[in-house]
Design a protein around this nucleic acid. Structure first.
Length: 400
DNA sequence: CGTCCACAGGAATGACGGGCGG
DNA sequence: CCGCCCGTCATTCCTGTGGACG
């Protein structure tokens, strides 16, 4: 063991791949955002009035994942806030990821936190938190930007009440001002909104088109310059990362991930070049990590459901339907000495698996023979094994 | 062309753990 | 400590429905 560890350390230390790999991490906000100049300008133009004390329009930003929405927004607000500091104008900025904080209460709590108002993270009624927020904010008489990232998931879960309240908050404020920047991946999202919310939130709209392969390549090149040692990247590597990510709807985050993981694979293997082969393996790796992590952190019943789906597919082939799956799931659960959840609940869990990309679920009508959902597992068995290996009872079923 | 299967999926409601202010 | 409200997960009850069969 000692030897192999020494060996590993030596390899990692001697393999000169990265200079600064943080440049490739998803949360890194670069100093320049190529191919988003137009969006940066439009957003800055819209929000700049805050610098002379008037309230900027609310903005709505659309675009599929990995098109730089978050990065551009953070970038522009950073600039505005720096400029504000120079001029002695107080600006509050609350950045809220609604996917993470997906209840009205947590969003409000975050808003309070952004203006240094202490609130318990549960316990108060939402309206009370809202009142406190309004009161404290108004006493500061400053401008505030509320950034609601991935706001679609919040609205789908809890409705648009909080957006309604927030868009009208300026009526209750006498000195402070609030502008909202809503960011969404879902292009049809506004259909879910109350027309009043839609119109006031969408005072300005900004669309982020996906990057094409050439633009991705350019982005990767610039980042790779600072991130990697000179000359370790084989010429086709960046092209390949860009092409693979372009296929995935032009997702720059994905492209950067691929490049970083490819570099890490090369480093771990003690290679001094990053090759196309590393990229291909990185692609599998990135997907595997995601799947394994998702499954491992799932509640027990969901994991048993996945296990049942796997067993069912193994015994009778693909295209399982809800009824069969539920029956098998029930028997497995009883084997574990637990009570099965109801079919209604399982139906929701199946949909959840579909959303996470672990299975596909499609409603089909078999005419006289009813209507059901056809479910298919769509992850490799090895990934499932890895995700379930901590539980010996599950593994026993897997190996049967 | 109507019937009727095998569920989908909406609505209402409840149990539960967490945390408040008083 | 109590009464209250919260969000989450789950159940119960329910109405809706695409299309092959007869």
């Amino acid at each position: 063991m000692r030897d192999s560890l020494d060996d590993l350390f030596r390899r990692v230390l001697s393999a000169k791949i990265f200079v600064n790999r943080d440049l490739l991490r998803p949360d890194y906000v670069p100093e320049d955002l190529p191919h988003r100049e137009a969006q940066i300008f439009r957003l800055a133009e819209t929000l700049a009035p805050a610098l002379r004390g008037s309230r900027p329009s609310n903005v709505f930003i659309y675009g599929v994942p990995g098109t730089g929405k978050t990065a551009v927004t953070k970038y522009v607000l950073n600039k505005i806030s720096q400029e504000g500091k120079k001029k002695g104008i107080a600006l509050n900025i609350a950045y809220i990821n609604c996917k993470h904080d997906d209840t009205n209460y947590r969003v409000l709590a975050d808003l309070c936190e952004a203006i240094d108002a202490r609130v318990p993270f549960t316990g108060l009624s939402t309206s009370e938190v809202f009142r406190r927020f309004v009161k404290i904010l108004d006493s500061t008489s400053s401008s505030m930007f509320v950034i609601l990232d991935e706001v679609d998931s919040l609205v789908k879960k809890t409705g648009d009440k909080i957006l309604y309240d927030l868009t009208r908050i300026n009526n209750q404020l006498s000195r402070a001002k609030v502008s909202i920047v809503g960011i969404t991946n879902d292009l049809k999202f506004t259909e879910y909104l109350d027309p009043r919310v839609r119109s006031s939130l969408g005072e300005e709209e900004l669309v982020f088109p996906p990057y094409n392969a050439l633009e991705l390549e350019d982005i990767l090149k610039r980042r790779a310059d600072g991130a990697f040692m000179r000359g370790v990247i084989e010429p086709q590597v960046i092209k390949l990362c860009a092409a693979l990510a372009a296929k995935e709807h032009g997702d720059a985050r994905r492209a950067l991930d691929l490049l970083r993981v490819a570099g890490e694979l090369a480093e771990r293997a003690g290679n001094d070049k990053v090759t196309e082969e590393h990229v291909r393996r990185a692609q599998k790796e990135v997907e595997k990590d995601r799947v394994v992590e998702v499954i491992r952190t799932m509640p027990l019943h969901s994991r048993i459901l996945i296990l049942s789906l796997y067993l069912l597919e193994k015994s009778k082939g693909r295209n399982c339907v809800t009824g069969e799956l539920y029956e098998l799931y029930s028997s497995v659960v009883k084997n574990f000495g637990l009570e099965p959840l109801t079919q209604r609940r399982i139906s929701d869990l199946i949909n959840e698996l579909d959303m996470l990309g672990i299975a596909t679920a499609k409603v089909v009508s078999k005419g006289r023979y009813g209507r059901t959902k056809v479910v298919n597992l769509c992850i490799p068995v090895t990934n499932l094994r890895e995700a379930l290996q901590e539980d010996p009872r599950m593994m026993a079923f897997m190996n049967k």
